[in-house]
């Protein structure tokens, strides 16, 4: 559907997008994730033809966005970061203009305009001036505009920024709804949002692609060394003695404590953390020591996100590996 190949963009001396490549297939909701200034908007602007690339190619269904802009742009509906609305018009007038500019005429134009008004739930404000609408409604009008012309891909740049919690939920529901009929790409710097709506994540940091895959997959693979947190009545040295024969323990840290309980952090280099926790449990049982509390510290996407953002400079090879792989790649980041 969309194929991005070795895309780079310089703003003067500043490298905003650094050799990004990925493929987007039909029928998914993709989340572009990255901290502010990571290059999300730049990438989206290039994909939609609003910005030129310094290097690289973008193909939309086989049409190059730079060589055949008209054919390529017809396949994309785009909502930029600031909804491009004419404040003195009503949503109805505005949508009619956009529809016409996208080549719709007559009955088809009216039909599509009423359809997108229906879909985005703006029929009760369609005759008011856009400048008087709330931010949530403005965002909806922006999304309605992107839907006109029935594009295959809808690209939304930070559609929930600046909205109140209720509006955010409404827009998220709308995106989920759109995901059923279109391929949707949307960007966000809020992780939970991407986690909630997307079935594919594209993570960008410092202009580089650092991860690409399903959220669960990423979460599973990107876990930092797994860790068991243990509260016991055994003392520091004793714990180490008990666990001496247990495999897959990378490191044991004991929190300094005044009380009779000791809290130990057992780090593992093993994939299956339950393997380790059962071994630990048995070892304590054999030594007749009590485990008051045992919990697993799982890495979550939040940690992964922060780690990847920080490490973007350190691991340039990683994104290359991903590029070589086909379409819905599993993330390779855990290798690093």
């Amino acid at each position: 559907m969309i194929s991005v190949k070795h895309l780079s963009k310089y703003y003067g001396e500043h490298l905003a997008v650094d050799d990004i490549s990925f493929d987007i297939t039909e029928g998914h909701v993709y989340g572009f994730l990255g901290p502010n200034g990571a290059g999300k908007s730049t990438t989206m602007n290039i994909i939609t033809g609003c910005l030129s690339a310094t290097d690289g190619k973008v193909l939309i269904d086989g049409h190059d966005i730079f060589d055949e802009p008209d054919a390529a742009k017809k396949l994309i509906g785009y909502l930029p970061e600031h909804p491009p609305l004419y404040m003195n018009e009503s949503p109805l007038e505005y949508l009619k203009f956009v529809g016409e500019a996208k080549g719709l005429r007559g009955a088809e134009l009216s039909a599509q305009v009423s359809e997108v008004i229906e879909k985005t739930g703006i029929s009760n404000v369609k005759n008011r001036r856009i400048s008087t609408l709330s931010k949530g409604y403005k965002q909806r009008v922006g999304i309605a505009q992107a839907l006109l012309g029935n594009p295959k891909v809808i690209i939304l740049d930070e559609p929930t920024v600046g909205l109140d919690p209720i509006q955010i939920i409404e827009i998220r529901d709308l995106i989920t709804e759109l995901g059923k009929t279109h391929t949707v790409i949307f960007s966000s710097h809020i992780l939970s949002e991407v986690q909630a709506i997307c079935d594919q994540i594209v993570m960008i940091a410092k202009g580089k692609l650092v991860a690409f895959g399903e959220p669960e997959e990423l979460q599973k693979q990107l876990l930092t060394p797994n860790e068991i947190i243990l509260t016991t009545d055994a003392a520091d040295i004793e714990i180490k003695k008990i666990l001496d024969n247990v495999e897959h323990i990378a490191e044991i840290d004991v929190e300094p404590s005044e009380s009779e309980f000791t809290v130990a952090h057992i780090k593992s280099d093993h994939d299956d953390i339950y393997d380790l926790s059962s071994s630990v449990f048995r070892a304590f049982a054999v030594s007749d020591r009590i485990i008051y509390e045992m919990s697993l510290k799982k890495g979550n996407l939040e940690d992964v996100f922060i780690e990847l953002s920080e490490n973007a400079d350190a691991e340039p090879a990683k994104s290359d590996e991903i590029q070589e792989k086909d379409v819905t790649v599993e993330s390779e980041v855990d290798k690093a």
Binding site: N45, K73, I76, Y78, L85, K102, G103
Partner: peptide, 14 residues
């Protein structure tokens, strides 16, 4: 100023 030029760039109009 109103950032509506973004719309013009993204429309299939040269």
């Amino acid at each position: 100023k109103q950032k509506t030029d973004q719309l013009l760039y993204s429309l299939p109009v040269s």
